[in-house]
Design a protein around this nucleic acid. Sequence first.
DNA 1: ACTTGGTCATTTTTT
DNA 2: ATGACCAAGT
Length: 775
Amino acid sequence: MINYLKNLNESQKAAVVHKEGPMIIIAGAGSGKTRVLTYRIAHLMNQGVDSFNILSLTFTNKAAREMKDRIGDVVGTSEAKNLWMGTFHSVFARILRSEGSHLGYPSNFTIYDTQDAVRLLSSIIKEKQLDKDKYKPKQVLSRISSFKNSLITVKAYYNDPELIEADKMAQRPKMGEIYHQYVERCFKAGAMDFDDLLLRTNELLTRFPEVLAKYQDRFKYILVDEYQDTNHSQYLIVRALADRFQNICVVGDDSQSIYAFRGANIQNILNFQRDYDKVQIFKLEQNYRSSNNIVQAANSVIEKNKTKLDKEVWTENSEGPKIKVMRTYTEGEEGRFIADSIFDNMMNLQLKNSDFAILYRTNAQSRALEDALRKKDIKHRIYGGLSFYQRKEIKDTLAYLRLLINPNDEEALKRVINYPMRGIGVATVDKLSVAANHYKISIFELLRDLNNYDLNLNSGTKNKLVGFITMMQHFQIEAQSKNAFEVAEFVVKQTRLIRDLEKDGTPEGVSRIENVQELLNGIKDFIEVQKEKDEDDSLAFFLEDVALATDFDNDKKDETPRVSLMTIHLAKGLEFPYVYIVGLEENLFPSAMSMNTRSELEEERRLFYVALTRAEKQAYLTYAQTRYRWGKLVDCEPSRFLEEIDEKFLEYLTVKESKHTQTKFINEDIFGSVPQNKIRFKKPIQRSPAKSKTAQKIEFQPPKNLKKVTNPASPKANLFDNNIVVGNIVNHTKFGKGEVLSVEGNGANQKAEIRFASVGVKKLLLQFARLTIIS
DNA sequence: ACTTGGTCATTTTTT
DNA sequence: ATGACCAAGT
């Protein structure tokens, strides 16, 4: 057996061996938190605690799996098997499968993902004939989500005049009705959304003391990772379960709390000592991950936050290189700089692709980066964004399977009733939906004895509906004797789903077919893995797994090492030798949505802190002066976070060092064939002095070899000021001669309508069009 | 009932 | 730029 205690420093060891009672581990970034958690569990087991009595809640399922493996290394795989580990959502989904009947849920309940929820809300809003511009489904959902996360039921909502008033003020007086209807419809469909998994668990534990007692007894030791990101609902579950034995161990770092937008309450960690008696506090402050430069730089940033626990992260690691800052003109150039830099680093330092990560604030930023990497032929993988399971063809296929498991799943039914097209249109589905609501049954039940209801359908439509329901019933029968893979395969064949995709013929169509194949393979793998582990390999369980999977979970067995691209949120808990943090611009990072209140801005700052502390050896910060947003080219200012880092940790890269010449970039990008001497930088940061004290002290350093211009117009504006006016005859490199009919917009977005002799009237963006004025 | 072409909104972050 | 949604045509 590994002598794990030897691998720990004093404070880590103390946290590992402490046995009974409530404890909190404040773990700075890179301080070996996972290691402590892992060894702590292993240690408990070595001390004779039955693995059956340990519950460990992690932030991702991947983290749970890895931790389980590592514990298995210490105590033996078979010992580790009984450990209950996973995310809040997956652990309590499983409990609800077996206990949900108390609440009137079937054990095969469906888990609605965000899309299902939004669709359901859309139809409710439509049925109620409400203005969908005032009641935006997504916003309504997030409002409902925040109710649920605070345990505000429909009833509680109606009892709270303040909430009602708030919604009235927000022009949404019918919020309560929608909430009510939404909850009912989910219930009727035998479905829970993500928040229900927590809310209903709370309901279960509160309303049924015997159930509570059962799980309290079972979970004698509870460990919660990333405690700073728990919401109120999760907080209450933990408190209820730990109430009996008080063996609750929470781990977290208030400086890394980045999920307030989904209800995470930083107070949970700040107040832990108040919530439990005789709390033992452990602090892990030594960072083993990053160079001293990075640690200190990160500290200098997070210092600016007011709400935080007292903690000083330090390291014995070497100084390391300074953090490199690069400014580029465009996002395209930003991407190319990074691709070049990664390439150079790999060549010079003999590194693998997997040593690099590119982190960004929003998923939309990945495109430009991906383009640049692809052009350089650098293998990479984008995490998050549209995951495999969110693709239309996959969701459609899964919807059949969902419907099979839970015929009341209305969102699944609506998805597939006319896919592939079988002539059952929206009008028909609406009729069915109305009738089903009226008779308080599901559409599936309605269809099952269609003849007993008068729905005013013509016989053709009726036949089609009967055809559909007969097919589904056929599937159900098959499902009784087949395993998950065989069922799925059968369904795909029978529905001619593939054949429908084949009709398309485009490359996308082909890849859709491959995706469906891939899904089938995935189910096959799933069965094998589950069999190996001697766990549930049913189709129902597969669907649950899929619904709660994070993007890391379907990581292919790592073939080639790849550069990782992901949002900073997704990067939490990960580490990479070389990290590029991109798009450090005001309104992007910090996000324009998060600059209204101090607490929002502090969360952005924590996000930046998280990003920086992912880096082991070297961090790069990049920003662009212009960027496409909602299709338009906009000017950007450098992020305030750049100023907030103590300057002594930074090194400003200049164009020269980026090796490839500026000119090349410029020509390719937006500057057309304009001579280089026309290009001017915008004046760098010019912030109002009042904003922050540090801003006054630390002047941003522009690259030295570039001239500043006192009153520069945006660089582009100069270029497009070539005075094209209506009536000009111009020459286009491709289209030839033409007459300017109209000019609209200005700056980068200036467009002109031009009638060419060769191709007729064209509308061109002047920034791209290579035009010369003839007369 | 489906297809097509045009208009509009969309970009925080995720289980 | 891209995709979702809607109105009018087939």
